[in-house]
């Protein structure tokens, strides 16, 4: 069954935003690919495993812990000092307190592989 919106997009020849999502790799595609490479595991288990890994990563960062994966990269927190911000609607200044933001530093292998393949592949987005 095709929804009205999809049909509209199709008629106008404009890509529906979530149809073009296939070009970017998403969590579910990652799970599918991992399941293909581990045929001895149930899809459900691969899904749980991916969620488990991501949850650990989020939990670690939320409690200020670093993540270090050789060849891939490391995640850490960067400190942002307090500053005066503005409400873009009213123009009023608001005091913003200090905070931490997640930071990713790609590892050497990832950096090299991505850079060396740049002539071969265009960036898909």
């Amino acid at each position: 069954m095709v929804s009205g919106f999809l049909l509209e997009c199709f008629k106008k020849g404009t890509p529906a935003p979530f149809l073009s999502a296939g070009l970017k790799v998403t969590k579910s595609e990652l799970i599918e690919e991992l399941a293909k490479k581990q045929p001895h595991l149930e899809l459900r288990d691969v899904e749980l495993a991916v969620k488990c890994i991501l949850e650990q990563m989020s939990n670690a960062l939320a409690s200020g812990e670093r993540i270090e994966v050789r060849g891939f990269g490391s995640f850490s927190l960067h400190y942002r000092p307090p500053r005066m911000g503005r409400n873009p609607k009213t123009g009023d200044s608001v005091a913003l307190s200090s905070k931490y933001v997640p930071h990713f530093k790609p590892g050497k292998e990832l950096r090299t592989r991505v850079n060396e393949s740049r002539e071969k592949y265009k960036i898909v987005d």
Binding site: K24, V25, T26, L30, Y121, I123, V124
Partner: peptide, 8 residues
């Protein structure tokens, strides 16, 4: 590596 961005 193959130019695909990854969104999780």
């Amino acid at each position: 590596e193959s130019g695909e961005q990854v969104k999780i």
